[in-house]
Amino acid sequence: MTVLFTVWGYDVTAIEFASVILAFLAIALGIAGNRWTWPPYFLSSLLYSWLFIEFHLFASAAMQLIFMAAAVWGWFSWGREGARVPGRLVTALRVRGIVGVLLLWVLLAPLLQSIGGAATWGDAFMLVGSVAAQLLMVLQKVEAWPVWIVVNTVGAVLYASQGLYFTSLFYAVLILMAVTGWRAWSARAANPAPAVTIS
């Protein structure tokens, strides 16, 4: 892979750098509830899938394919007006969601280990947790953001352990962005206002 620059001995590739910049743009637009969150999200996921395959993080690579599908779904689901008033899950659905994520995580990690995956427990959690958060995001549920906080925390540790320091730093910043998103969507759920739109 082409190295774009080196920081403290770490080579940042063009793919990793572009993925991070596109993802920052997508998440900032997502916090605002803007429909244009989805195209850069799609492109960032496409590039990250390539990067993760190179590092044998197979679940993280598969996760990007799900993100690309979610980006297409989100584009059409949100429509021109962007995210409407965010909703909240009832308690029973929250509990079922947590149980489902934990069950799938425990089932997926040994499978990844059997095919030679790296850091399989963290990688499996990233896939399952991210799918849950992404689904909640497309469905415009406030709970997407606290789930992203957990997922991004795991991601920051996982990718640092695999030598992807730029991506690890990116995930650390994503924790703060997810906190911002949680506050913004919670406020909009409590006090509905029109979403930001761009024609």
Rank of each mutant, 00 (worst) to 15 (best):
T2V: 08
V3W: 01
V3T: 15
L4I: 06
V7L: 14
W8C: 12
Y10M: 02
V12F: 05
A14W: 12
E16I: 00
E16N: 03
E16G: 02
F17T: 03
A18G: 05
V20T: 12
V20W: 10
F24M: 08
L25H: 01
I27P: 01
G30V: 01
I31H: 01
R35H: 01
R35E: 03
W36T: 02
W36A: 00
Y41L: 01
F42K: 00
F42M: 08
L43A: 12
S44F: 03
S45T: 07
S45D: 06
Y48K: 04
S49P: 02
L51E: 13
L51R: 05
F52L: 10
I53N: 02
F58W: 14
F58I: 14
A59K: 06
S60C: 10
A61G: 07
A61D: 04
A62P: 07
L65H: 09
F67T: 02
F67W: 14
F67E: 02
M68Q: 09
M68L: 08
V72W: 01
W75R: 01
F76C: 01
S77T: 10
S77E: 15
W78V: 00
G82E: 03
A83H: 13
R84M: 12
V85D: 09
P86K: 07
G87H: 10
G87Q: 10
R88W: 13
L89C: 07
V90M: 11
T91R: 15
T91E: 13
A92P: 02
L93W: 14
L93K: 14
R94W: 14
R94T: 13
R96F: 15
R96C: 12
R96Y: 12
G97C: 03
I98Q: 08
I98T: 15
I98K: 03
I98R: 04
V99M: 09
L102A: 15
L102C: 12
L103R: 03
W105E: 06
L107V: 14
L107T: 05
L108A: 08
L108M: 09
L108D: 07
A109F: 00
P110M: 04
L111R: 13
Q113D: 15
Q113T: 11
S114V: 05
S114R: 14
A119S: 15
T120D: 11
G122L: 05
M126L: 12
L127P: 01
G129L: 06
V131P: 02
V131M: 07
Q134H: 04
V138L: 09
V142K: 08
V142Y: 03
V142W: 02
A144W: 07
A144G: 11
W148F: 15
V150R: 05
V151M: 07
T153C: 13
T153Q: 00
V154G: 09
G155D: 08
G155H: 10
V157T: 06
V157G: 07
Y159H: 13
Q162R: 13
Q162Y: 06
L164I: 00
F166G: 10
L176N: 06
V179L: 14
G181E: 05
W182Y: 13
W185T: 12
A189G: 11
A190C: 04
P192R: 08
A193W: 04
A195F: 09
T197D: 10
